[in-house]
Design a protein around this nucleic acid. Sequence first.
DNA 1: GCCGTTTTCGGCCCGACTGTTTTCAGTCG
Length: 573
Amino acid sequence: MKNQIVSERFKEMATMLELKGENPFKVRAYNKAAQNIESISEDIEKVAAEDRLTSIPGVGKDLAEKIKSILETGTFKEYDELKAQIPEGLLKIVNIPGVGPKRAALIHKELGITSEEELKEAAQKGLLRNLPRMGAKTEANILRGIEIWQQARARKPLGITLPIAKEIINNIKSIGKVHTIDVAGSIRRRKETNKDIDILASAEDPENIMKGFTKMPMVKEVLLCGSTRSSIIIEQDLQVDLRIVPDESFGAALQYFTGSKNHNIHLRTIAEKMGLKVNEYGVFRGNNRIAGKTEEEVYNSIGLPFIAPELREDKGEIEAAQSNSLPELIEQKDIKGDLHMHTKWSDGANTIMEMAETARKLGYSYIAITDHSQSLTVANGLTPERLLEQIKEIDKINEIIEGITILKGMEVDILSDGSLDMPDEVLQKLDVVIAAIHSGLKQPEEQLNARILSAIRHPLVNIIAHPTGRIIGERDRYPVDLRAIMQEAKLRGVAIELNSFPNRLDINDEGCRLAREIGVKVAINTDSHLKDQLINMEFGVATARRGWLRAGDVINTMPLKELKKFLYKEGIQ
DNA sequence: GCCGTTTTCGGCCCGACTGTTTTCAGTCG
């Protein structure tokens, strides 16, 4: 997959054009294309080979040619030309908070600075304050910007940011009378990683709330503090923005600050054609506010139904809203069980009983116990003999436990030759067989594909676990052909897992859209190793929603009876 | 550089905050 490489080139191109003071819309064109190329689930080389590059939104004739050039040579002419003119270090300093293209260019021109280190040194020596329209404060801000940038280079997973956001909202509520408060930004859209935390509120006494907000115990630094907007850095090195707006504008502001940027641009373009203006205070016809108190109002006022935040990426949701064909998205309450979890029998921390009781409290009617198989020695994987013992124990627990059914399962390894790490006659005694790759991750694409495909064709396999193997911020996905895997899985009555572990989310949102397109069923599982991780289902459901999935696309929304029909492959040859 | 229910040219979202300035440029989201 060279999607990332193409995307990087275009992003860098955009930055260089910005530094040259080029047409900002050209800059945006490159950035938008980069973003879309990064997020499509298909291999860009395949799209190029099939001459479908211009079907990617934001890619026209010109960029299509440039993509081909990147795929063949790793670069393209205009990129090389600009690259030759612009010092490498300049590209780095332009990303530092407080330094934009104008200042980067000025700093470079006047002081000859070409790197982050040189900039830091110059700021420490007080050389920046003498430049036009810059002073001691700007200089200090840039110095601070370098620090922030070094710390926060990595986006943080939703599994970290969402709980913090919830905690901060509770804190703010305790400061004074808050009318309405909600998280906005990429967290509200449930994007898998977030750069910062955006919170929006309306309140009795905004000044007081703002003051309290900047004085919370977790605050490490106050970046700015106004009556409508404040920004802080918290202990976890995350930036948190709080905005306070009037009640009558809350919906408009929530819509605006939830984004995404591309979704909002598209929305405003539609509004403009209707003679309306949309900003964070409302929807206006001339000076008349015609909507703004709720998000529903805002969408309705421009002729659209409410669009769920998870869909707001300008990837077809606005068109779907216009034609009244938005999907009825899956919700947490649709989930009837969790089909992937571990216990003390392998590398989990809790007993079968503890897992079952926690799941029952979550309102589930079934779970599957799916410990590892023997080849995964590091995880204390089960031999056939131990699995048979575990089966007996589950039978016993099922007899005494009430209100929940425990399905017998295993997360069985797909070995290097594509065979399963457990004899068929033992697997046959199980209700759920999950097949997964945990070894030989460095094998070439063809071999990995072949292993997974052969597991899918095994008549006893029900689910393929974490199909791409990526771990956010640690390990790239392995180069498997997700489309081919899904097509085969659909044919064989096998489900594809959406692993809800916050640093996995595998398949991801784009994978979900592909699954929906192909029509393969998805299993949203937590892969819990502790009973406390069962609540991670929230992240899987959120990702499924971002991937346009409905309850009917997901097997663990089925009642047990129906699920069993799926697991026993009734009607599949 | 893209794009089209104002279509092949001329648009492309818009306001807050800061720091510098004496009316606004730069950055950010």
